[in-house]
């Protein structure tokens, strides 16, 4: 690299420092601090912290509950990301047609994304109420008894997955719609002239052209899902029996309910490593297959 004259250096620093200072202060310093705290036992308020070395990590990796929570985190992420992308694409294809009331439908779909998670959680708690809720009423019409969504560990996770997907669907739809608009019409016309059916056109034209958008959505949704908190906090508090407890919830619970800052920092550090690895893998292996026009 060619050496920059000092004037350019000053200019460079002047441009970069406001952001850099904020990042260092509010992101990287706490990050390092958290990493450091994972080697201590501390209750957040006592003046002294006890150095425990790797104890928090050995505890964490030998505990069955912790493994269960890691599993929950991945189940939740996998399910929400898949359903958001699949349903998001389907709805975007539908809304890309010239339908009556299309704009209104787009607005309605996007609205949940800007509503606070706490409000969504409370409303959906009513929807899922096993006795008086909307879901129970619909199932009742079909002659099916409503499962006890709040108390049954097998149903609580599907419940939060449904709510979280509902909330984020609008975002995926909007991004997919934007992607669909960029595909040149001529391609479809040419394909039609060549006798390609609608499925072939979708597979050979639409999907490849949407791959950058899909990749973008995949990365952001995975990061978002792995850090989902508000809906779980409001709807289930991680229960029943830890069945909806994810790693971020565990960070909160260990740190600010049980006041085990060391244990919380350990979970946070492990989660950070997971996110880093997932993202690096995606960028390295998936991005190659992304088709940029």
């Amino acid at each position: 690299m060619r050496k920059l004259p000092w004037k350019e250096w000053v200019l460079f620093l002047a441009f970069v420092s406001p952001n850099l200072v904020l990042l260092v202060l509010f992101t990287y310093k706490p990050l390092l601090e958290t990493f450091r705290l994972s080697f201590y036992n501390w209750d957040l308020i006592s003046p002294t912290k006890t150095w425990v070395g790797m104890d928090n990590y050995t505890d964490y990796f030998s505990d069955e509950t912790d493994r269960y929570i890691i599993r929950n985190t991945f189940v939740f992420t996998f399910a929400t990301v898949c359903s958001t992308l699949v349903f998001g694409l389907m709805l975007a294809l539908l809304l890309n047609r010239r339908l009556r009331g299309r704009d209104a439908a787009r607005t309605v779909l996007f609205a949940p994304y800007v509503v606070s998670g706490a409000a969504i959680g409370i409303v959906w708690l009513f929807v899922f109420d096993p006795r008086f809720g909307l879901v129970a009423a619909i199932l009742d019409r079909l002659g099916i008894a409503s499962p006890n969504w709040y108390n049954d560990p097998n149903y609580a996770m599907p419940m939060v997955i449904i709510v979280y997907t509902w909330r984020n669907l609008g975002y995926a739809v909007v991004v997919y719609l934007a992607g669909l608009q960029t595909i040149p019409r001529e391609l479809y016309e040419a394909a039609r002239v060549d006798g390609a059916g609608s499925f072939t056109r979708f597979r050979r034209i639409t999907l490849p052209h949407l791959s950058p958008v899909t990749f973008f959505l995949l990365v952001t949704s995975i990061l978002g899902s792995m850090q989902a908190f508000d809906i779980i906090r409001v709807m289930t508090q991680g229960g029943p029996l830890d069945s909806t407890k994810t790693m971020v919830y565990q960070v909160y619970e260990q740190g600010f309910v049980n006041y085990r800052v060391g244990a919380a920092s350990t979970v946070a550090t492990v989660l950070f490593v997971f996110l880093l690895v997932v993202t690096v893998l995606q960028v390295r292996f998936l991005e190659r297959r992304v088709h940029y026009s």
Binding site: F26, T27, Y28, K29, P30, L31, L32, E33, T34, F35, L37, L223, Q227, V248, V251, Y252, G255, V261, A264, S265, A268, T269, L271, F272, L275, L276
Partner: peptide, 9 residues
């Protein structure tokens, strides 16, 4: 991801 960490830090 760092923010999740920062929560504790």
């Amino acid at each position: 991801g760092a923010a999740a960490l920062g929560l504790v830090g």
